[in-house]
Design a protein around this nucleic acid. Structure first.
Length: 103
DNA sequence: TGCTTGACATAAT
DNA sequence: CATTATGCCAAGC
């Protein structure tokens, strides 16, 4: 079974509301542990009108990924706040409270 | 079909 | 905390 973008989208689509997941976590759930780069690259290929909750995907530091440009980062933060995620003064939030737990 | 590119993670410096 | 180096591999050209 080869993993491509589609499998990554499937996993991200399963992220419950008011929860977030790291790239590494998604990669693991998608069957490609350690390949966090695949996740990020898959998201980069997403369209602006996609149905994938890409805003629930963050890096291992519990922060919004510093993608190219800065306007999109603001959007992601707004979308997360609308779901109940509360950001720290450092632009982070408690992964222990908001990270998606599959257990 | 061979090379370059990446919304990352981890460790070392 | 910022920078550098390495792992890993599909997508795009």
């Amino acid at each position: 079974m080869k993993i491509g973008h589609d499998e990554i989208y499937e996993v991200i689509a399963r992220i419950p509301s008011r929860r977030v997941a790291t790239y590494g976590q998604i990669a693991e759930l998608a069957g490609i542990p350690g390949q966090a780069r695949r996740v990020g690259y898959a998201l980069s290929a997403l369209a602006a009108d996609t149905s994938i909750p890409w805003h629930r995907v963050i890096n291992a530091k519990g922060m919004i990924s510093p993608r190219s440009g800065s306007g999109s980062g603001k959007l992601q933060r707004l979308l997360l706040q609308k779901e109940g995620i509360v950001f720290d003064s450092s632009g982070r939030f408690d992964l222990t409270r908001f990270q998606w737990r599959t257990g």
